[in-house]
Amino acid sequence: MYLEVNGITVLYDRAMVLNDVSFHVDKGELVSLVGPNGAGKSTLLRALAGLIRWEKDTLKGTTLGKITLEGSVLFGGEEMMRLPSHDIAKRGLILCPERGRPFREMTVLENLEAGAYLVKDKGVVKETIDRVYGLFPVLDKRRGQVSGTLSGGERTMLSIARALMSQARFLLIDEPSVGLAPLVKEDLFSRINQVHGMGITILLSEQDIGFAFDLATRNYVMSRGKVIAEGRADDLLADELIRKTYLGL
């Protein structure tokens, strides 16, 4: 197993956000994580990327910093929970945060260069920039534009491109389709598929069930901080209880 998550529990003060979550992702899979708002999908991805730990360290000494974080995350056989977030990124496990979060005052190109922070070889950086421009031609068109002025879809694409710049092997994509128009969603859908086709393993959190189930090879359903079901789209949709209670279909 490429990514093996065992018993992740996260408490903000006394509010339980993740309750003993376990799952796994194999190499080359595109797995989706679906569930309603507040199910803990974003927190789970943030925990995997080491951001919960970072948040805990940064806010230490304040009431917001009272965070409990337990469990184990094995990535490529190595324990991630002990590593600071920048070292997790170094292993190729990279989060594309919700709404992309580009560095707003930098241009698109500068964002990509910042993404390549870990890559010391200038030739590789140039090569990768050309590759992500091929994948996302709109970013090439906007290369000199300040990224704070990009549209929602472009921001999401920029965050995926930025992650690819650091030679990501495993992408955690948080709610890529949130707030996007249907046509933009379609476009993004095919681009994510292309990224997956490049041999990159993807774990994707999503509220749009149609978007997630069409894209993913396997799915996990989350609710109230727990993984409550796992399976292929057809099986999950065939289960009356899951369909009605958790997917709202």
Binding site: G50, T58, P84, H86, P97, Y117, L118, S166
Partner: peptide
Amino acid sequence: RAVAQDSETANLMGI
């Protein structure tokens, strides 16, 4: 500059 603009996201770039 990345840290100045969004320190949390800067972490994700391996910074």
